[in-house]
Design a protein around this nucleic acid. Structure first.
Lengths: 337, 337
DNA sequence: CTGAAAGCGCTAACAC
DNA sequence: GTGTTAGCGCTTTCAG
């Protein structure tokens, strides 16, 4: 069943059918109805390859996910996938390990699959214009920004919580609970990425409340996975430095860190309070439940797609959204007497 | 840059270039090298739409995932995606809530995206031939089988652990540890699906060891999500029936059930032992760590893709793989004195 | 408003 | 072995 068959059946030309199919206004209502009826009756579906060929473009949107163990991203992908579908596009998904470069991967994917747009789930915060010229389609940074880069605001879009502020708020909460010796866990503190921003937030909170920054309390885990969180906490315990609370940069790492505390004979929150960022549903069921800054996961996902399509379809410039993270109280933080 | 440009540049015909591009044997080595060099030099990438158009097919493989909260599937999708990419195909992903019908969704997806094959991640176990005639491409049931259906073995493929046996083994382990009153948690015991099979395994294990099947110890949660596991255990505790162990059909539900136990003032494993099926990495970090039957997640994913491509490319018939689940000992099971 | 016809880039006969 | 050529199904001028 092709457009020709429909045309013949309706006694009109193929171009007329094409016009109807593409919602062109210049078709008489009478003919339009006739064509629509024939399409319906025959269960005709236009051939996308032919369409793409002549328009020399596809309906594909690339989604590049960096950091495979990240449960937070898994949740977002579902929403993103649903939104992309709903708008009539096709999602092309690519997973990257945290050591791979998302820009290079995105550029390759763009050419391979003839992408119309790109959505990056996680990435570096220090893009430079020369580097991004590899990317020839609109893109949005989903759950991160370009704080350390030199991109012009209008040349890209981003949707992300304020990492600095969220970390600042989390640490402040610990301080207000009476904690003075607060350990912290990051992938790398100078990665020019999410960890650096959250580290800065941690430092600022200490400083603003008159607490010293002790290097011995900062742990660089060298990764974002659970095993990294576990190893990090093990290491800190071995250092022998005392602390009464810990700020961990992600829920998954926090779960692992709490296990390391238990294995080291410490109770949460009696011996050590823990706070994290993400707000995974899972952490409402752990023992103890986790106190964490919840990222508005669905909002970030939906807005990212909306903004990307707007850039693709209407050529709009960069939009930068900063949805708020909010606190969810669990059992992992103890108020000191 | 098109195939014509390459042809002109090499002083050969387009069909020769096409032959080289498609690894056809009937090209002289000399010409092949020349063409390859030109392709390389120009960074030429064939236009997929044109290719698909003339072959009237796409390179898309549909992956339909049922049950969105399932962390086990999230892990598999990464491997599946990687394998599909590696073999030069494109993955089209569709998430379904557990109430939607995967066959209908697959059939629609097949037409919308011109799929070459389908991979179902989770689904009913009672497919009938009439129903499956909706699907016009090869498909494999990933992590489930057709135990309650009437499909001919050669008409489809499946890769899954033996749910009956795995449940049987898990429950037997509890029995061997001295437990006599073993509660159990399933979505629905007669869903003609994964839960029914695991329920049967539970029943058989009790019977084979001379233990009675008590209805009051069987909980139907009506869902596969964490909240269902939590609600289920709450309900059981309210019934007041005594029990010393619980078999839960998935890790995520087990985590939630353990929380309900804690909330009810019970300790794991002192007051109640817990065993589950899945083997998520996560459950090595929970408190207590979970004793669980580990599904060989990567193996299932890789084999599923391999088998599907084999069906697509070589028209092979149904293959049915039953990889073994194996026990991972955690802290959630106590051996009764 | 509508139809005829020219490609979009590629593959696969078919001739040489 | 290799080149020529006829479409694959659709959109889009360009006439009418």
């Amino acid at each position: 069943m092709t457009i020709k068959d429909i045309a013949r059946q309706c006694g009109v030309g193929v171009s007329t059918v094409s016009r109807v199919l593409n919602n062109r206004p210049d078709v008489s209502e009478e003919v339009r109805q006739k064509v629509l009826a024939a399409v319906e009756a025959n269960g005709y579906i236009p051939n996308n390859s032919a369409r793409d060929l002549v328009k020399s473009r596809s309906d594909a949107i690339g989604v590049v996910v960096r950091g495979t163990g990240n449960l937070f991203f898994s949740a977002m992908i579902k929403t993103i996938s649903r939104e992309i579908d709903r708008r009539g596009y096709t999602m092309v998904l690519r997973y990257l390990s945290s050591s791979e470069d998302e820009v290079k991967a995105g550029a390759i994917l763009e050419r391979e699959k003839k992408l119309r747009g790109l959505l990056f789930l996680g990435g570096r915060f220090n893009y430079m214009p020369e580097e991004m010229s590899l990317i020839g389609v609109p893109y949005v940074c989903c759950s991160y920004t370009n704080s350390f880069g030199t991109l012009k605001e209008k040349d890209f879009s981003s949707v992300s919580i304020d990492d600095f502020k969220t970390a600042y708020d989390a640490v402040t909460l610990l301080i207000n609970a009476g904690h003075k010796r607060i350990a912290s866990f990051f992938d790398l503190c100078d990665d020019h990425s999410i960890s650096e921003l959250r580290y800065e937030g941690y430092c600022a909170a200490l400083k603003d409340h008159g607490l010293p920054l002790e290097e011995a309390l900062v742990v660089q885990t060298g990764g974002f996975e659970m095993e990294d969180g576990y190893r990090g906490m093990k290491e800190l315990l071995q250092r022998g430095t005392s602390f009464t609370a810990a700020f961990v940069e992600s829920d998954m790492m926090a779960i692992a860190a709490m296990k390391a505390l238990r294995d080291g004979g410490k109770r949460v929150p009696e011996d050590c309070s823990v706070i994290a960022i993400d707000g995974l549903a899972l952490t409402e069921y752990t023992s103890p439940t986790l106190t964490t800054m919840v990222q508005p996961c669905d909002e970030i996902a939906e807005e990212s797609v909306r903004i990307l399509l707007d850039m693709m379809e209407n050529g709009t410039g960069g939009v930068h959204l900063r949805p708020q993270a909010h606190l969810r109280n669990g059992e992992s933080v103890r108020v000191l007497p």
